[in-house]
Design a protein around this nucleic acid. Structure first.
Length: 307
DNA sequence: ATCCAGGATGTAT
DNA sequence: ATACATCATGGA
């Protein structure tokens, strides 16, 4: 839907709504965008991923998608959006609005952890981020808390992204591979990236020079995970994150410290001596939507752990 | 002050 | 393949 401001004024904003009835299983925007799977959406109140900012129920979230600012907020358990273009196909892809959460839950074994996580966070969806942003985000994620991972991506966008000023604010796109390939290690350390700085630069160089790009990543999940580790700073866990949160491999299960602990506690029979072997075991248990199970478990455990 | 955070890398075995 | 130390930064 387009609102014309006048005959001689070019419309710069389109708006629309996506009723919850069109989203099978519904959607909880705050849980979806602040559950540690995507770091390219921000809340306009500035409290994204902050401990005090737990009231984003009706706040605007925004991201820059292909030079267009896309804003979206929860509206009567549906979505309301504003963008420079039709945002419906963008939101459908990025928020995986076609995933049937009821069916996905039915496909996952209904053990106590999964049951509680699904009951606690109805409408939590796996997100799909642009490849490069997802790759860099999770290269930065090692030994970091979600709040700081987010602030690092914000800093990268502010310093190296493209600036877009609109009537609602000033926004920054995620940097291009060339922009991050041409900076210096010291500059990135000043943004708080620490030892990840050279990883970010090296991986950005691989992509910007065309030596290794998304086109070189295999289509099948297991081959893609192997291919991704050729990027600098990408091991098995980060590769699984990119497989799940960008490439759409819903069977990928990133095994971070939270999931390793959860496996010891809830699925001891899946414990193995290596990442790869444990990954196979937990994936076999959870099934084809294992990544969804991981996302629910991770989000629940991170907010309901002891002490 | 000491420990830890969505792990990966380099090196040695 | 597997074991180990090392890698920055900030918050608790």
């Amino acid at each position: 839907m387009v609102f014309f401001l006048g005959d001689d004024v070019k419309p710069d904003v389109e708006r629309g709504r996506i009723p919850v009835g069109e989203v099978p299983g519904g959607i909880d925007l705050q849980s979806t965008l602040e559950s540690g799977q995507s770091y390219v959406w921000a809340r306009e109140d500035g409290d994204t991923y902050t401990r005090t900012g737990r009231h984003g129920g009706s706040a605007w979230y925004y991201t820059v998608h292909a030079d267009s600012v896309v804003r979206v907020r929860q509206h009567d358990r549906g979505l309301e959006w504003e963008a420079m273009t039709d945002a419906v196909p963008i939101l459908e892809e990025r928020l995986r609005l076609h995933d049937d959460l009821s069916r996905i839950r039915r496909e996952i074994p209904d053990d106590p952890l999964i049951e509680t996580a699904f009951e606690t966070y109805p409408g939590l969806r796996v997100t799909t981020d642009p490849f490069f942003a997802c790759l860099i985000s999770f290269i930065c994620s090692t030994q970091m808390r979600a709040e700081r991972i987010f602030s690092m991506q914000q800093a990268l966008s502010r310093e190296y992204g493209m600036e877009i000023a609109t009537s609602t604010g000033t926004y920054y796109s995620f940097p291009s591979p060339a922009a991050l390939a041409n900076t210096t290690e010291d500059a990135l350390r000043d943004l708080g990236l620490g030892y990840r700085a050279p990883y970010v630069i090296a991986t950005s160089e691989l992509i910007s020079t065309g030596e290794l790009t998304k086109d070189d990543i295999s289509n099948s999940y297991e081959a893609a995970r192997e291919d991704l580790t050729k990027f600098v700073g990408v091991g098995p866990k980060v590769a699984d994150c990119v497989c799940l949160f960008s490439l759409g491999h819903l069977e990928a299960v990133p095994l971070d410290t939270w999931m390793q602990t959860a496996i010891s506690e809830y699925y001891p029979e899946c414990k193995r001596e290596s990442y790869h072997a444990t990954s196979n075991a937990i994936r076999e248990y959870y099934g084809q939507f294992a990544g969804y199970a991981q996302t629910y478990a991770f989000h629940y455990l991170r907010h309901h752990h002891e002490s």
